[in-house]
Write a protein that binds this DNA or RNA. Structure first.
Lengths: 72, 72
DNA sequence: TCTCAGTAGGGTAATTAGGGCA
DNA sequence: GCTGTCCTAATTACCCTACTGA
């Protein structure tokens, strides 16, 4: 059986993102609803997150978060 | 669920760090603002601390008298 | 088809940020 | 200088039930 290489972006589950930020999975959901983090939905309504975006946010390289950082 | 291995650094909450040093969480916040301790921010602005860094600082807490002894 | 950990949704408690003061 | 405490507002954690997905 042959699998044509379909380029897809690495996605993370809510639990995985939550673990990286050391927060509750529900908190990640709130970030998505608030538009602070873009999310992809499964056909059943569950959210998936782009690993690349999450890593950038963790590194503090996104404007939204830097705004919070700047008051330090 | 699979939980594909996502490499991320273990983080600590302000309360956890405060308990380890036996100080008020607010004091930990001041350490972070003073640059004595590096911090990562959640998307909501709350701080998270690197466990490895905290442990190193704890290990560096040397009793006054012992510090003097060490120079012998 | 069955199982069950994970997630969504909503509500309420607990932490944290920030400033100022002792 | 350094820490603890009081205050308000914002953010996050924990509770539940029902549905999703591997």
């Amino acid at each position: 059986m042959s699998m044509r290489p379909v380029e897809s972006e690495p996605l993370l589950t809510p639990a995985e993102v939550a673990a990286m930020f050391r927060v509750d999975p529900k908190t990640v959901t709130r970030w998505a609803k608030a538009g602070k983090l873009s999310s992809i939905r499964t056909l059943g309504g569950h959210r998936r997150y782009r690993e690349s975006e999450v890593r950038e946010l963790l590194a503090g390289m996104i404007p939204e978060q830097r705004a919070a950082d700047d008051q330090v």
